[in-house]
Design a protein around this nucleic acid. Structure first.
Length: 725
DNA sequence: CATCACGCTGTTTTT
DNA sequence: CAGCGTGATG
């Protein structure tokens, strides 16, 4: 029956083996970084299938769908193909699957639309605008902050005042308005058949709590439940686990309290310690042996975590002996840091290290901007994970909105987007059309019958034609995308200067769409599992390139890293000074995740002389003295680990001075017509951004360049080299 | 009513 | 250095 015979005791250590062989009853696995957590889960799936459990009865909940897919793939390689039929995914995707067929029980149509982050921002902000809040001593929070507040209050299941009090005290004077906004938002979602990511979980839980039959049915369907990254679940997700395993108690949760880095979205690693309370007969297993890093790296990590305010459950050790000391480098400024990193990479490369095995990790996506420029300049290929979302770029959203209004006629946000693309239709006209549509309850393609139609509104007719075509039955998703693209093309051409790139990306949507049966499932899948970049659509590039990643994205990735650089900056503005402590603790755990991904070499870089961009009068030391800490305080707190000090005054002297000399070239005066022989209209090439055209000089230091690949991009000439072509 | 130019402001990470 | 509000222009 089984294709391959697995000798579990030969490939697993005793703790792992116990976790794999305990199939019945609740199990809590506390798994340190690099302790073979994934391996354990993979073997357990294989084992379950081996003893005859139907794959359909196994549920593997992970943090990303990609992670689930990879695990099942590995399990299939170990045992047999049936492992691929195991149900795997995120809490959100499971919730989505269930809600799609049972939304009626909650007073929703089954055709509700899912709001992604930026949709949510748009809804929230348009409601806030309608409220006409009066300006007080400080500005009303901006759209993304407002959305964060609402989302967090949903995830933490507290009122918005609580969130404000704890995390945004600067906005306390708007407590009333934000509270009202929260309820307006809730009502708006109901009226328009919308659910955001948080709602998926909340409504799923509600369904489980209120509906015994569904609960029982899911219990029968998923007799064996495994949850990965349990420390990153929030209270709602913990409830979901509890309800789903209510009858059979066959649930294994795996996690690591010191790797909890999602508290900003309401995750609570204490769920791990509360798990035994839910299932008293739980068996707890600790995985403490590390298979990834050398002992010196683990020693640094352990020292780091010893300083934590909370004590954690385990201590990492390894049987690997030897290894070089981790290096802590003060790189002075950001451009020097970039130079230093590139030089280190080149050195390793000369020693025969493949850059495929090298990764650079950082907290925020923008931390690598400077480095990316330098990498491009030096011709080092890289792949970046995290940060910018392909789907959130305006042209993609524009196109998809047309499909969304066809699928869900009540989706006012997408209507607004679609309508405002038409010439002579802006904020107010689009609003009155939407209101009229709501009154009339007519078909979407009858939009051109709007009574307010004026002379210049021929665009509505074209839109109506498109919508009519899109409403045709049995229209395949790829045909639908094609139709919209044909309609949208002239608009796109007018709206963006880098039309060709955007058009190409949109064409890729056609091939993506062809993998789906219906428009609805295509749209939802894009939201539930958004691809990060166009390159990701084609599958990850496997060529020989460096990995750049935010720590959060790195968590889900498996690569043979031997070398990790953590670029630090971590500066928190005064408004958040009160919660520095908590931020500090989260940053510490972030650093734990980052450092434990290093196998043999670990470089921790921090640019101590970098003045945070937005606080031009302050610098790093100032941050330290006025707010109690700067990231370097982590490092200073690790005695004996700082084995190298490097700045432009020492090892970096030569290249940095060259760089500095470039930066000191005379800048053009305000309103200058040319600089370095460049004039507006000249074609230029930038090492990072590619080809573009100089549009104008803004002031002494900035020039506006239209890049073919990036749209408008402002550059500091002191930092970069524009090459005339 | 739509659009454009200008000035001000400031945390980030993801489903 | 983008995204917002504001005030001027078409």
């Amino acid at each position: 029956m089984l294709e391959n015979k697995i000798e579990y005791d030969k490939v697993l250590n005793p703790a792992q083996l116990e976790a794999v062989m305990t199939l019945e009853g609740p199990v809590l696995v506390i798994a340190g970084a690099g302790s073979g957590k994934t391996r354990t889960l993979v073997y357990r799936v294989a084992r379950l299938v081996e003893v005859g459990v139907a794959p359909e009865n196994i549920l593997l909940l992970t943090f990303t769908r990609k992670a689930a897919g990879e695990m099942l793939e590995r399990a299939a390689g170990l045992a047999d193909e049936r492992c691929r039929r195991v149900s795997g995914g995120t809490f959100h995707s499971l919730a989505y699957r269930v809600l799609r067929s049972h939304a009626g029980l909650l007073g929703f149509h089954d055709s509700f639309t899912i709001l992604d982050r930026s949709d949510m921002e748009e809804v929230v902000y348009s409601l806030a605008r309608d409220m006409q809040v009066q300006r007080r001593s400080i500005r009303f929070p901006k759209r993304s902050t407002l959305t964060n507040i609402l989302s967090k209050s949903a995830n933490l299941q507290t009122g918005t005042e609580e969130v404000l009090r704890l995390e945004y005290p600067q906005f306390l004077e708007y407590t009333q308005e934000i509270g009202r906004l929260a309820s307006l938002y809730k009502g708006f979602k109901r009226d328009n058949q919308l659910m955001d990511y948080d709602d998926l979980l909340i409504f799923f839980r509600q369904l489980l709590t209120e509906n015994t039959e569904i609960r029982k049915r899911l219990g029968v369907q998923y007799r064996y439940i495994m949850v990965d990254e349990y420390q990153d679940t929030n209270a709602i997700q913990a409830d979901i686990v509890k309800w789903m395993a209510e009858d059979h108690h066959n649930v294994m949760v795996v996690g690591d309290d010191s790797q909890s880095i999602y508290s900003f979205r309401g995750a609570n690693y204490r769920n791990m310690f509360e798990f035994p309370g839910l299932f008293p007969e739980v068996k707890t297993i600790k995985l403490e042996e590390n298979y990834r890093s050398t002992q010196p790296i683990l020693t640094l990590t352990n020292a780091l975590m010893e300083q934590a305010l909370e004590s954690y459950t385990k201590c990492l050790f390894t049987k690997r002996s030897g290894g070089e000391m981790p290096r802590v480098i003060d790189t002075g400024t950001e451009p020097e840091q970039a130079l230093f990193i590139c030089r280190s990479i080149q050195d390793l490369k000369k020693k025969g290290q493949s850059i495929r095995d090298i990764a650079v990790l950082f907290r925020a996506a923008y931390h690598s901007f400077e480095l990316e420029m330098e990498l491009n300049r030096q011709g080092i290929p890289y792949v970046k994970y995290g940060g910018f979302k392909f789907l959130e770029s305006a042209h993609i959203k524009d196109l998809l909105s047309h499909l969304r209004v066809v699928v869900n006629r009540d989706d006012a946000i997408s209507w607004g987007r679609v309508l405002r693309l038409i010439k002579n239709i802006g904020q107010s006209k689009s609003q009155s059309i939407i209101d009229w549509m709501k009154e009339e309850r007519c078909h979407s393609w009858q939009i051109d019958q709007w009574p307010g139609l004026g002379k210049g509104d021929g665009g509505l007719g074209k839109l109506a034609e498109l919508l009519k075509a899109l409403s045709a039955e049995k229209l395949k998703p790829e045909q639908a995308v094609r139709l919209v693209l044909d309609y949208y093309e002239p608009i796109l051409m007018e709206k963006y200067d880098d039309f060709p790139r955007r058009y190409r990306e949109l064409e890729q949507l056609i091939s993506m769409a062809s993998r789906y049966k219906g428009i609805r499932s295509f749209l939802d899948d894009l939201i539930m599992e958004p691809p990060n970049s166009p390159s990701e659509l084609k599958g990850y590039p496997k060529r020989d390139s460096l990995t750049l990643s935010t720590v959060h994205s790195a968590k889900g990735l498996e690569w043979a890293s031997v070398f990790i650089i953590w670029v630090m900056d971590g500066f928190f503005p005064p408004a958040r000074a009160h919660s520095n402590r908590e931020s500090l603790e989260e940053e510490r755990r972030l650093m734990y995740v980052a450092t434990t991904r290093a196998k043999d070499h670990l470089f921790l870089c921090y640019p101590s002389q970098e003045a945070p961009r937005s606080w031009s009068n302050t610098d790093y030391d100032h941050a330290l003295s006025s707010h109690g800490f700067a990231p370097s305080s982590f490092i200073q707190a690790l005695p004996g680990q700082v084995v190298e000090y490097c700045s432009y005054r020492t090892g970096m002297r030569e290249p940095v001075e060259k760089w500095l000399a470039k930066g000191q070239e005379k800048m053009p005066e305000k309103g200058a017509r040319s600089y370095k022989g460049l004039r507006p209209g000249d074609k230029v090439r930038h090492p990072a951004f590619g080809h573009g055209v100089v549009s104008k000089f803004l002031d002494k230091e900035k020039v506006e360049v239209l890049f073919r690949n990036f749209g408008r991009k402002l550059l500091h000439l002191g930092y970069t080299t524009l090459e005339k072509v």
